[in-house]
Design a binder for these strands. Structure first.
Lengths: 235, 235
DNA sequence: GCACTTTTTCATCAGGTGATGAAAAAGGAT
DNA sequence: ATCCTTTTTCATCACCTGATGAAAAAGTGC
């Protein structure tokens, strides 16, 4: 990084002399992120080369390093881009649920739905990039080497919000149990969101991975019943 | 593969003249598989080089190709080694459950326990390699590119056995619902078995990934309640 | 000791990897 | 037009990748 300083990687322009730059560069940046997202989602971090990303995005290899630095920084940029949106949407959804109810009308299933539904919605309606993104997150979630820290860094707050909200509905529940149940929930949810195609062949066509409406009809009540059973058993 | 023919990769000796070979070679083969298993589990297929595997196993790089051929074949060998054991154990466990009950005393939770418990048991008591192996399977399970086919090839039969056994307990349940619930179950189970450490930091020490006893106390009833809720809702 | 097979090592190849520095092109203000 | 900055391309480096052929070593029956 000695040639020409990259555009101050935090997003704020260096503002030397040239104007904020006509967004042509930003478009290209997004194009690179989209290409990287799709490839990383399918093949994982180590299964993708910067040259493949460049080819997919239709840019020169060096441009990737110009904008993002090292390959790992590119990956992080892909990860963080939608994580921020996701956290905003989920936090808003859970806040809205709490605001619309008081403690007597809140249910475990309602809280869980407020937690999961935004993800299903955005995967269905938010554009094609989101499916790749969820596959990516599912992969990171199951990566022992560095997945845990990455997930924690971005998604711990919203999970704590879920747990605290559930504590309102079931004050007698123990944190231990709620965290374990969350782990079960996130395993189911991530696998369903990543649409691996496994259930398609397994069920010989009865179920389709891409049918998130079918997931919605079942996952909320499945998880809610699971939470209730674990909480009840502990008492 | 032109120098000296490798030992007929299916396990049966070519039996030309030399005797079955004093198991020294087989020990080394297992050593390589163990090294590869641990590395693949931590870093994924593309995150590991044959040279790393060789170094970890303390053998020459060429020896890996001599025994296993291409890198991908090594991975498959790692995968298949314990998959066979796993399928035997699980099939036996479910058969034993069915044999010990008749239709009136079988429960959804009992069947699910017969399906999951062998994995928890073997992870706890079967030796250290199993933890790596489950992390590996969890990763493959969440790999869109080729994970689906790999999982199907090895694990479809035992899943069909689970579904058919559940059909005995709940004859009115639809296959659709059972397959979706299985997907939820396997997501929870695989994440718990792979011990990513995420729940440790998330719960600030309240829960430990390695505490499979805690998983056992919760996962069976969680999943069983989920199945029951989904089945009941569909009726 | 000797013929023969299997196992292990050594040296090496052709191609791909992430990354960089320097030059060229494009954009914008005066 | 011209200066200055930002963006994009080009050529290249040092290193690593999976894989292989040939030679050496070890094992085995006679």
């Amino acid at each position: 990084m000695t040639a020409a300083k990259p555009p101050s990687r935090n997003g704020v322009r260096a503002s030397g002399r040239g104007r904020p730059s006509k967004a042509k560069g930003l478009d290209l940046k997004e194009t690179i992120l989209d290409a990287a997202e799709g490839l990383f989602a399918r093949h994982g971090f180590h299964g993708v080369t910067t040259r493949q990303v460049a080819a997919e995005a239709g840019v020169d290899t060096a441009l990737i390093h110009y904008y993002f630095g090292a390959k790992r920084e590119l990956f992080d940029a892909v990860f963080v881009r939608r994580a921020q949106i996701l956290n905003q949407v989920r936090e808003a959804s859970m806040n809205a649920y709490v605001a619309a109810h008081d403690a007597s009308t809140m249910t475990v299933e309602g809280v869980i739905e407020a937690f999961i539904d935004p993800l299903l919605r955005i995967s269905q309606d938010g554009g094609p990039g989101w499916k790749s993104y969820f596959a990516l997150v599912a992969q990171v979630n199951n990566t022992p080497a560095w997945g845990g820290e990455t997930m924690a860094r971005f998604f711990d707050p919203v999970v704590h919000q879920l747990v605290e909200t559930l504590k309102i509905v079931r004050p007698q529940a123990e944190y231990r149990d709620l965290y374990w149940c969350y782990q079960f929930l996130t395993g189911s949810m991530m696998l369903s969101l990543s649409e691996t195609g496994r259930i398609d062949s397994l069920s010989e066509g009865e179920c389709r991975s891409s049918d998130l409406e079918a997931v919605r009809r079942r996952l909320f009540s499945y998880c809610a019943a699971g939470f209730e059973a674990v909480i009840a058993k502990a008492l």
